[in-house]
Amino acid sequence: AVPSSPAELPTGAAEFDPGAANRILLAGDETAAPAICAILEALDVATVGHVFIEVPTDADRLPVSAPAGVEVRWIARNGASHGVRMTDQVHAWASTVAAGPACGDAGELADVDVDEQVLWDIPAGDEPRPVYAWIAGEAGCVKELRRHLVRGVGLDRKQVAFMGYWRHGKAEN
């Protein structure tokens, strides 16, 4: 199923460009929750995929509509380290993805210093891809998840959009 085009998405969710992907993965922390909810509410009803949103507690879950084929999991940290529970869920999801060489060339991943550089890449949706992953939140966690999906699982780097919204322990300049 083809998700909605970026032009149909509300402001703030325009960085989502799945092209004609067969399925989607959305993952983020509470800073990404508003964008993820906007994306979910704008998806085509035939979209298939998984969503993992890590929030501080169960009380931080938000009501959201999603297509029937999209499983949404709100993951409460409940005192755990930031990103750990979401990372575990994405790793478990990734173990079910048929990737490898057939998905494309992983290519070189530049080693971004998340303490000094902005972690932000949105691949163009003009190439066919079986999976489109959109990851946003704390930069260190986002970097690790992208690295795992590309190097560990074998997704083509053009299948993974990622945005480091903030960095743990760093004030915004």
Rank of each mutant, 00 (worst) to 15 (best):
F52R: 04
L40A: 00
A35D: 09
G12C: 08
W120Q: 14
D115F: 13
D60H: 06
V55Q: 11
K143P: 00
C37F: 13
N78V: 05
I122G: 12
A13H: 05
A66I: 09
V48R: 10
D44N: 12
P130Q: 06
D113S: 08
G154A: 11
V142L: 03
A66K: 06
V150Y: 00
A32S: 07
P18Y: 04
S4H: 03
A68F: 09
A32Y: 00
F16W: 06
A171T: 12
A161H: 12
A1L: 11
A7Q: 08
T57I: 04
V112K: 01
E30R: 09
A1W: 10
T11E: 15
V160P: 02
D121I: 14
L119C: 02
I75D: 04
D105F: 05
T57Q: 08
T47H: 02
V84N: 04
E41N: 06
G152F: 14
C141V: 13
P128L: 01
Q159N: 07
Y132T: 10
I135D: 10
G12F: 12
L145A: 08
V114M: 07
Y132V: 00
I122Q: 06
G169M: 02
V118Y: 11
D60V: 01
Y132M: 01
A133T: 11
P130K: 08
T47Q: 07
A133Q: 10
L43H: 05
E172W: 07
G164A: 08
G19S: 05
V2E: 05
H91K: 09
Q117T: 12
V112Q: 00
V51T: 04
H148M: 05
A133I: 07
G140S: 05
G104K: 00
A110E: 08
A46D: 15
A38W: 00
H50C: 10
K143C: 01
E116Q: 13
V97N: 00
L155P: 00
S81I: 12
I75H: 00
E127A: 14
G164Y: 07
L40N: 07
A59G: 11
T11L: 15
I135T: 09
E54N: 01
I122Y: 10
D126V: 11
E116S: 13
A139H: 05
G152P: 06
G169N: 07
V64R: 06
G137P: 02
D17H: 07
A14F: 12
Y165P: 10
E15S: 14
R146A: 07
P18Q: 11
A66T: 12
Q117M: 10
H91P: 15
P10Y: 12
K170T: 07
P123M: 05
A94H: 03
G104M: 02
P101T: 14
P67A: 07
E116P: 15
P101C: 14
D113C: 02
F52Q: 02
E15D: 13
R61E: 01
R146F: 04
D115R: 14
